[in-house]
Design a protein around this nucleic acid. Structure first.
Length: 297
DNA sequence: AAATCGCTCAACCGCAACGAA
DNA sequence: GTTCGTTGCGGTTGAGCGATT
């Protein structure tokens, strides 16, 4: 419906990236009509962000395919979800990772391997993507340091040296080994695919377990959580995803007042949310979002 | 000042899991 | 039980930008 009409975006916006600039070969200069029919890729514009935010406010953060369709963004549901989860979610922390967080990432990675989303659940306000990127950078640095400090005779080219992060607990001793030449491209395993311990043997715990009455985690809580997890080693791998999965709206991630609204909002049906959400009372999100397009169209 | 290098991070892809029909 | 559509996760890529040469 609206998708066709809405998608007459002028390619020149004030945003840094042209909407049709895409590092996957989706550059401008092609017939606009043809582009209207294609799914957009590449960097998001501020206008798109605004539209997406409003539609998420309207319909929640689960029905991505639906949102992608009705918003007129001409993006895939996956793309919308990713943008929301990694960038637009109000609870995201924008600042650099604290030393505690960095330590926690290393600790959890040693414990769980490349289970980025799981690790992210223990770091309120951090996304799996962010953690993944951090880890990658961290390991690269480590690899370079190691390489520098290593005598030539022991250089990785002549031996299978590695960086080792050890994490010991009462129940497990996990050693994470990362190839010191992460980008050498040798071997099947990605440089930061440490694999971690066999996940089936590890316990899991809902991230909601250590929220205080306000819903906030402290670093102590998180560490305590880790300890507890280790104490409860043998647990089914499956977990209550519906509960844990809503961590994206975990109160620890956003301002308490906003969270209250959001938390309850997501429990509502779509119709309810339409009625209750503050945005919907003044102006429909659809109108709000699409007004951007009209302005620049 | 220009060129090159290295790092960061946003965004893509493929695949697996899940749920509904 | 099977198929199909959707969602979530992990791996990877490359643009942009600051630092270095």
């Amino acid at each position: 419906m609206a998708s066709i009409q809405l998608f007459t975006i002028n390619a020149t916006t004030s945003h840094q990236h042209s909407p049709f600039y895409c590092h996957h070969g989706f550059r401008g200069g092609r017939n606009m009509k043809a582009e209207q029919e294609e799914t957009r890729k590449g960097p998001w514009t501020e206008q798109e962000d605004a539209v997406l935010v409003n539609f998420v406010h309207l319909f929640g953060d689960r029905r991505w395919d639906f949102i992608a369709k009705v918003s007129g963004l001409n993006r895939t549901g996956k793309s919308c979800r990713l943008r929301w989860v990694n960038y637009l979610h109000p609870g995201l922390k924008r600042e650099k990772m604290s030393p505690q967080e960095q330590r926690l990432v290393l600790e959890l990675h040693a414990k769980w391997g490349n289970r980025w989303s799981r690790i992210a659940r223990k770091l309120p306000g951090r996304t799996d993507n962010e953690i993944k990127n951090y880890w990658r950078t961290h390991m690269r640095k480590k690899a370079q340091e190691k390489k520098k400090s290593m005598p030539k005779s022991l250089s990785p080219s002549s031996s299978s040296s590695s960086i080792t992060l050890s994490s010991s607990s009462s129940t497990t001793t996990t050693t994470t080994t990362v190839d010191s030449l992460p980008f050498s491209g040798t071997g099947k395993i990605s440089f930061y695919d440490t694999g971690g311990p066999k996940m089936a043997a590890l316990g899991d715990k809902s991230s909601t377990d250590f929220k205080d009455e306000k819903g906030y985690y402290s670093m102590d809580d998180i560490w305590k959580d880790i300890d507890m997890s280790e104490e409860n080693m043998i647990k089914p791998l499956s977990h209550n995803y519906s509960e844990e999965g809503c961590n994206i709206f975990c109160p620890s991630m956003a301002s308490p007042s906003l969270d209250y609204c959001w938390d309850s909002l997501w429990k509502m049906d779509d119709e309810e949310s339409k009625m209750f959400h503050p945005f919907s009372q003044s102006i429909s999100c659809f109108e709000y979002g699409t007004s951007f397009f009209n302005q620049i169209g």
